[in-house]
């Protein structure tokens, strides 16, 4: 399913439980990810964002084991090393509106403790890769929603992360930008592990080597986009209209099957 890497398993999650007061966001989730582009699908409230936040070292597991880039996240001393090799774009990300694109990306390169000498080139490269080179010196407050999203992606990839976590990265991008973005994901996914949480299953179908479907805080499907699409083909006839594309039908079929259990 995924190409072997010298790094070994990038993400290893065992029986992950995350609770917030009275609500359980993740309930015994298991997940293994290696290099490649991985899609994370699931309905609203399935636990996608919570999983991303746990892998992004922001949220703490209630129980279970989470190893990222070879380090147990329960080990506080290892967090710094993990974070240096992490890229993260949350669904709703904050920014300093008076910063220019270049300053914003440079600031995160600094926060990620990149070597000083490599920062200027890395910043230019990240901005170039998201197609904002001509707006690099514009202030963030002057950018459109799609451009802001791309600036967010640039900060996430500036350190060439070994694990890139993107929550709804294509929201606000126009079709052409989404095509470019898929190319970018595939390029990054050659060496790194990219986890993309999205509702846009066509992005997953085109860009991802593997897809995981989460529902009710658990992983209910794991396979390639083709395998997910195939799950739709085996659905009862009455459910054939549950999507416009094979992968949408597969997505719906898996979810309904899980709910029926």
């Amino acid at each position: 399913m995924t190409a072997p890497t010298t790094l070994g398993t990038h993400v290893e999650v065992r029986d992950l439980v995350v609770r917030f007061k009275n609500r359980t966001a993740l309930e015994g989730l298991d997940l293994n990810l290696d290099a490649g582009v991985h899609g994370l699908l699931g309905p609203n409230g399935a636990g996608k964002t919570t999983l991303m936040r746990v892998l992004g070292t922001i949220a703490r597991p209630t129980s279970g084991q989470v190893a990222v880039l070879g380090h147990d996240l329960g080990n506080q001393r290892a967090l710094r090393d993990v974070r240096r090799r992490l890229g993260y774009l949350p669904q709703h990300f904050g920014y300093y509106p008076r910063f220019t694109v270049r300053e914003f990306v440079e600031y995160f390169a600094w926060l990620k403790e990149m070597p000083s000498a490599s920062i200027p080139l890395a910043v230019d490269r990240a901005i170039e890769r998201v197609g904002l080179a001509d707006r690099a010196d514009d202030r963030l407050k002057r950018l459109s929603g799609g451009m802001l999203r791309r600036a967010g992606i640039a900060q996430a990839i500036v350190n060439d992360p070994d694990l890139l976590l993107l929550d709804e990265p294509t929201a606000g991008l126009d079709p052409e930008q989404r095509v470019d973005f898929r190319h970018l994901l595939r390029a990054i996914g050659v060496d790194a592990c990219v986890l993309v949480a999205t509702h846009l299953v066509e992005d997953v179908a085109v860009a991802c080597t593997e897809v995981s479907l989460v529902n009710g805080g658990r992983t209910v499907f794991r396979g390639t986009p083709d395998e997910l699409a195939a799950a739709g083909e085996h659905a009862p006839d009455g459910e054939l209209n549950s999507g416009d594309s094979p992968i949408e039908r597969g997505y719906t079929a898996v979810l309904r099957a899980d709910r029926a259990r």
Binding site: G56, V82, H92, G94, Y96, P97, L111, K112, E113
Partner: peptide, 18 residues
């Protein structure tokens, strides 16, 4: 208070620099 106002902790919380 800028980080709070600009909802930055979600991003800065994943970075390694102390």
């Amino acid at each position: 208070g800028r980080e709070h106002r600009r909802r930055m902790p979600e991003l800065t919380g994943t970075t390694s620099r102390p």
